[in-house]
Design a protein around this nucleic acid. Sequence first.
DNA 1: GTCTATAAAAGGATAGAC
DNA 2: GTCTATCCTTTTATAGAC
Lengths: 196, 196
Amino acid sequence: MGRGAYAKGVAKREEILEVALEVVAELGCRNSSNREIAQRVGLSQAGLMHYFGSREDLYMAVLRARDERDTADYWQPGSDFQGFLDVIEHNTNVPGLVQLYVEFSAEASIGRHPAHEFFLERYEWARRLLAQSVRTAQERGEFGPNVDAELVADIVVAAADGLQQQWLLDRSIDMVARLKAVSGGFAALSHLDPAD
Amino acid sequence: MGRGAYAKGVAKREEILEVALEVVAELGCRNSSNREIAQRVGLSQAGLMHYFGSREDLYMAVLRARDERDTADYWQPGSDFQGFLDVIEHNTNVPGLVQLYVEFSAEASIGRHPAHEFFLERYEWARRLLAQSVRTAQERGEFGPNVDAELVADIVVAAADGLQQQWLLDRSIDMVARLKAVSGGFAALSHLDPAD
DNA sequence: GTCTATAAAAGGATAGAC
DNA sequence: GTCTATCCTTTTATAGAC
């Protein structure tokens, strides 16, 4: 374990990432400011800038940090569909994160936005991982053969994103249950004779 | 037809709504400003404020205007699933609108945001309409009976939103084709014996 | 309806002391 | 590492003339 100034710096960095999510959840992306975050972690705005050179840097760091954590905790290559559901379930506890992702990914669509590449790669990664888990399920016989794994993955990823959008507005929506229904539907379908 | 100053005012209002979308598509919500919009429609910023009392007013007007138009053109109560697909197809031509919806709906999740109610009602409306069209399809025999119309509607609306998020980042994604696949999947499923 | 001018606030970033 | 102070920019909104 690092000591003194170093360990403190790392801890503070973590705290900032955490608080940034809080602020986004409360104020939205547009109204979140470095000043507000700084105040909540007990720093001046200039003090905050010591950790992250710019506003964009800070939010990109939030995005990456959470993906790394989720990947480690729930969903790596080789995980099954349940791992994916676990991530969604966990997102229920971090509305700021969900909001940041939705708003940022939309904003990142504009030309040469710093997060553009990030989101493109992330989608590719998610779809590939999910398609893999469908194929695994097919080998185990949980999923029938008569369905295109890539297609199922595309739909499930899209549905998950859309559900999160709705959940932000109405927290009573049960995202996991609905995603299970999608998956269950495709599982049943996959046993159908394609000649039907 | 209105004459003179009145007609001109109405036309200018329309133009502003149109240009606001352009600006959002180019700069994103966070970086869109009244000044930029004003400049593009050949007004001063103060001139723009004559039409819309505040920034929020302007964007809410954009949202409502487009919904009214889409409803009139493609998708009213009684429309079938194709009408829904037509809206999505049409959205392909208005990336600014899609972006505005995604960003705004996420931002509107925060407490007492002016657009909060708007989006909640809009989701309820969309799901109800779509569920209705599934039921109609069931009566016609295009859809089998063994599926819950409300559930299908929920999934399709969510998938549509998620696909639009992805499409913003990668315009080569064919949203309509994928949504047809979802619908086709459920249609096939709906003929399955529920005892399976 | 549209402009100029201006207020008033807020944001991001930097310089330099400690 | 952290602060104070400051700068510069941008934004929304208003007042009042034409």
